Measured scan of single mutants.
Amino acid sequence: MSIQHFRVALIPFFAAFCLPVFAHPETLVKVKDAEDQLGARVGYIELDLNSGKILESFRPEERFPMMSTFKVLLCGAVLSRVDAGQEQLGRRIHYSQNDLVEYSPVTEKHLTDGMTVRELCSAAITMSDNTAANLLLTTIGGPKELTAFLHNMGDHVTRLDRWEPELNEAIPNDERDTTMPAAMATTLRKLLTGELLTLASRQQLIDWMEADKVAGPLLRSALPAGWFIADKSGAGERGSRGIIAALGPDGKPSRIVVIYTTGSQATMDERNRQIAEIGASLIKHW
């Protein structure tokens, strides 16, 4: 067993022997301040990774656009098919120029040779490549099948209805392509620590998230040296922004954090800054 596999296998073990965790309302004060600064709703939840206990939450059962955070769930569904012998990570998928959609920095470079399922998941999570996500959605049967996968996990809230990039439209009061912070946090925890996926697939999923290259201005910008984070960000229309993450000190994750916002007129930089400040408060009061 590799060191990384050992780390993920012992996530519940280490967490069980940690000192009790206590909620700190100071972080919620910052979440509410972010709402004021952005002029928009902000949803927040913080779960203990081992027990699933909610440590703090704000608007945990209000719907927010998922945006690209759905790509972690998508690759979880792909990995479940791999575990069941219905898919192979090494299978190569070929596609054409007509398949390319807006923001496809990886797939646009491989029109000639195609990409493997493993490479597509890596591109979808680490670079948020939209064509990679659409190609992977095709392998599982489309958005409705991802929703069905989530329902089978016990998540009857999260739903995907459309493809990239239309799913980022974020129309107010439109339930399409949305989740709730509580539902997303619980589902992410199941994917990373539950028995739904094999140990190898859980490790692969967290490795992809740990290698995320496009979430630097968010929670990662607030992390002290030595902290662990595996995350996936999302951005959408109407001032929408979000991030889902597993993080913790001492090089291992111990909490799940989900943050979503929508309806702001603020710039992307300002949305990023507010999420980073929430992260800084979380870490300060850990």
Rank of each mutant, 00 (worst) to 15 (best):
H24E: 08
V29Q: 12
K30T: 10
V31E: 00
V31H: 01
E35S: 05
L38A: 10
L38T: 08
L38M: 08
I45A: 15
D48I: 04
L49S: 12
N50K: 10
G52M: 06
K53V: 14
K53F: 09
L55F: 07
F58H: 06
P60S: 13
E61S: 10
R63F: 13
F64D: 00
M67N: 12
M67D: 11
T69Q: 00
T69P: 04
K71T: 02
V72Y: 02
L73S: 13
C75A: 13
V78Q: 03
L79C: 04
L79R: 00
R81E: 07
G85S: 07
E87M: 11
R92Y: 12
H94T: 08
Q97A: 11
Q97I: 08
Q97W: 09
N98Q: 07
D99Y: 09
E102Y: 12
P105L: 12
V106L: 15
T107D: 00
H110A: 14
L111R: 11
L111N: 15
D113V: 09
M115S: 05
M115I: 07
T116D: 08
R118S: 13
E119I: 02
M127F: 14
T131V: 15
N134F: 02
L135T: 11
L137M: 08
T139H: 11
T147C: 06
F149W: 10
F149C: 13
M153E: 06
D155R: 01
D155N: 15
W163F: 07
E166R: 13
L167T: 11
N168V: 12
E169I: 09
E169Y: 07
P172H: 11
P172D: 06
T178Q: 03
T179M: 01
P181G: 04
P181R: 01
M184D: 00
T186Q: 15
T187W: 05
L188D: 01
R189K: 14
L191K: 01
L192C: 06
E195R: 13
L196M: 14
L197N: 05
L199K: 11
I206R: 09
D207C: 12
W208Y: 12
K213N: 08
K213P: 04
A215M: 02
G216I: 10
G216A: 12
G216Q: 13
L218K: 03
L219C: 03
L223W: 03
W227V: 00
I229F: 04
K232Q: 01
K232F: 02
K232A: 01
G234T: 01
E237T: 12
R238E: 11
S240D: 08
S240Q: 12
R241M: 04
I244P: 00
A246I: 08
A246E: 05
G248L: 01
G248V: 01
P249K: 14
K252I: 13
P253T: 11
P253L: 06
S254P: 09
T267A: 08
R271G: 11
N272K: 03
R273E: 15
I275T: 04
E277G: 07
A280S: 13
L282P: 01
